[in-house]
Design a protein around this nucleic acid. Structure first.
Length: 700
DNA sequence: AGTTCAGGGT
């Protein structure tokens, strides 16, 4: 006999340790206290039938409740079989079933049963409505909710607090906050639960100001408040950066001995972090004697929003040491910080973890995973995630479009934009930033103009500074410098420094001295301490041979006490991050790296590379200009990558500034001569170098 | 027999 069949015939069922041998008069206590599985229930059920006690509805309903709600991790099958055998179920039997379906994530079934109850003319009682409304809430079924509301009004439960609290919750959860308020105003306003329901409704609908107003009202009316109230109010404080009220609540928590409440203290931690006091949040977090996954996640997201990525990874590490399992929310914060850092290895580890734990690829998790891959330059992985996501929203599509645009695949980005519209997803303002940058990074001038018009005409989105910036970029990169300049002059809102900087960068690429000078004038007025701007104009002079003017601009900068931001490039090898600065001799690898860089330059020179001194340090001696360019941080990092990785490995570099034209040219040739793919993430976008050309088509 | 609450993405 095959051994596998034996497993289905264990002797255990007969001599199970939970076997019930003695039955008390009232089986309810027994069912509640001892039944852990359906098998236990079976025995009680059998006993009830044998003793004909099952004809007593009270016993049967107790059994039903146990089967539907009290036995952990079980389906509704057993409960359904009991329910179907009840001759004329009364409201309580229906209530148990409706409550259980909602509890077990089948709110749809709950509503179907409620309809059946109506058809059978069983009168709902004051417990039926809350159970059913909760199901509507879960499903965001506002129409069904409204129908039930009408039935409530017609019934005698219209003034029942419990019923009204659930109504408020249902409307707020379905986004109908003004309906919720109407219900609230119709209550006696004497129950803290009612106030809490309304408060949480405002918080859920992101009406932070209304929430605080309600809390004020609550204190004026002297209804009192509890922990749940404070948690909602703290959320609103965090979003409004209302530190005064936040601190008042913190005081209240301290003086009233409420620090043992993990939820409440977590909310205080979150409030401080959102108000910008992340260190204060941390010290409070450290004082907690118990931390659950939400507390850890709040601290991690606090650091993540403060862009303190190193701290995010440290706390995440501590969390694992503390043996608290991260969940989706935790991982979203961690991934978004990996995206900022370009921490490919760590982010991949998180993705692996998600797969190992078979976590659901929700819209949020999927979107942040895509963004992470896109920001590490791995667009194919990003698209793979996108294709696996069962649901996508405007965020997901926007990340995809922006990712493709930044990785030099502008045409593909626009294809996906068209597909997005076909899928009836409405683009928002951020989507258009992606669409317009796809145009600018690909040189699609007329398409760009078209989208800029379409944005407000077809979708009612008013362009923001960022959108004007994209247009300036589109025109400027294409060499339409004069038009870009006029575009800025005609902008209905005040151009900021970023706009002028964009124009200045175009002037650098197209050697336009006059408008470059004009741009710098505006930049000096708006952000006088930004070193890169002076350097850009200086390079423009250099590129047309006006070395004296170039020197003059650099001196002007130095006189103002402005220091150059040193160029810095990072390379990740075996999960370790190596940092290189331009002309850096302090690095422990400097000798090795300089030798490697020298060899590398020699090699590409014989393949036709000509150094471009326009990007050199101006104070370098004439003969040293070439060496100055050769020691840009990027070249050092690439040289290091060449000697430290096996032939054929892709080299990934991130740098803090934009790629200079000499490095760009050199890297193209390196990719060909050494047969390497090289991916450079600069402060604006990606460059994928392969076989002598770059994904940006020399257009950045 | 029931109701309110915390952390996340372009």
């Amino acid at each position: 006999m095959a051994t596998t069949t034996l497993h289905h015939f264990p002797a255990k069922t007969i001599t199970s340790p939970t076997t019930i041998t003695q039955f008390p008069e009232n089986p309810k206590t027994l069912i509640l206290q001892q039944c852990k599985t359906n098998k236990d229930l079976n025995q009680v059920h059998a006993h009830l039938i044998k003793t004909r006690l099952h004809l007593n509805p009270r016993f049967t309903e107790n059994l039903l409740e146990s089967a539907a709600i009290l036995i952990p991790n079980t389906t509704m099958d057993y409960a359904l079989s009991i329910f179907r055998n009840i001759n004329e179920p009364d409201p309580s039997a229906y209530n148990v079933m409706i409550r259980a379906f909602t509890l077990k994530k089948s709110p749809q079934e709950a509503l179907i049963l409620y309809q059946k109850m109506n058809r059978s003319s069983v009168q709902p009682d004051h417990f039926t409505f809350p159970c059913t409304l909760k199901a509507c809430s879960r499903l965001r079924a506002v129409r069904e909710g409204e129908q039930i509301h009408a039935q409530i009004v017609k019934s005698r439960f219209g003034s029942n607090d419990l019923v009204n609290n659930t109504l408020i919750h249902m409307y707020a959860n379905c986004g109908k906050i003004e309906f919720a308020r109407k219900v609230f105003d119709g209550t006696s306003k004497s129950d803290v639960f009612t106030w809490n329901s309304m408060l949480s409704g405002y918080v859920r609908s992101e009406c932070w100001g209304e929430a605080l107003k309600l809390f004020d009202e609550m204190r004026n009316m002297g209804v009192g408040f509890d922990e749940v109230t404070l948690i909602s109010v703290l959320t609103a404080c965090g979003r409004l950066a209302n530190i005064e009220l936040g601190e008042w609540i913190h005081e209240y928590v301290e003086t009233n001995g409420l620090k043992g409440s993990v939820n409440l203290v977590t909310s205080v931690v979150d409030m401080y972090a959102k108000c910008g006091y992340v260190d204060k949040a941390r010290s409070l977090f450290d004082e907690m004697d118990r931390r659950d996954v939400v507390a850890w996640s709040a601290m991690i997201s606090g650091y993540s929003q403060a862009r303190k990525c190193k701290e995010v990874l440290d706390v995440f590490c501590d969390m694992q040491m503390a043996k608290v399992e991260p969940n989706e929310v935790t991982l979203v914060s961690v991934l978004s910080c990996c995206a900022v850092l370009g921490a490919l290895e760590t982010g991949k580890w998180v993705h692996f973890y998600v797969k190992k734990k078979r976590m659901e690829l929700t819209v949020t998790l999927g979107t942040v995973l895509m963004d992470f891959y896109a920001k590490c330059g791995l667009m194919e992985s990003a698209i793979e995630v996108f294709n696996k996501m069962p649901f996508k929203n405007v965020f997901s599509w926007t990340v995809l479009i922006q990712g493709l645009a930044n990785n030099g695949q502008g045409k593909r980005a626009l294809d996906f934009y068209a597909l997005m519209l076909e899928n009836s997803i409405e683009p928002n303002d951020v989507t258009f930033i992606g669409v317009l940058s796809a145009c600018s990074h690909t040189g699609l001038v007329n398409e760009g103009r078209g989208f800029f018009v379409s944005m407000s005409r077809d979708f009612g989105i008013d362009p923001r500074t960022e959108h004007y910036g994209c247009m300036v970029d589109i025109l400027g990169r294409a060499g339409l410098i004069e038009e870009a300049y006029q575009f800025i002059k005609n902008m209905p809102i005040q151009p900021n420094a970023v706009i002028w900087r964009t124009l200045l960068a175009s002037c650098r690429a197209h050697k336009n001295v006059e408008i470059g000078e004009e741009s710098l004038k505006n930049l000096v007025r708006l952000e006088p301490m930004h070193s890169g701007d002076y350097i850009l104009l200086s390079n423009i002079y250099g590129s047309v041979g006006r070395w004296e003017d170039a020197m003059r601009v650099m001196n002007q900068m130095r006189e103002k006490g402005i220091k150059k931001t040193p160029g810095c490039s990072l390379i990740e090898l075996d999960g370790e991050i190596y940092e290189f600065f331009a002309e850096d001799s302090a690095s422990p690898y400097s000798k090795e790296v300089y030798n490697a860089a020298e060899m590398m330059i020699k090699n590409i020179k014989s393949a036709g590379y000509m150094p471009d001194a326009a990007d050199a340090r101006l104070d370098a001696e004439e003969g040293d200009k070439e060496a100055s360019v050769a020691h840009h941080s990027e070249k050092l990092a690439i040289a290091f990558g060449l000697i430290k990785t096996p032939p054929g490995t892709t080299i990934r570099i991130s740098k803090n500034l934009r790629v200079c034209s000499d490095c760009h040219n050199a890297t193209k040739i390196i990719s060909k001569v050494f047969s390497r793919e090289i991916v450079v993430r600069d402060r604006n976008r990606f460059h994928h170098f392969k076989e002598g050309s770059c994904s940006c088509n020399d257009y950045w």
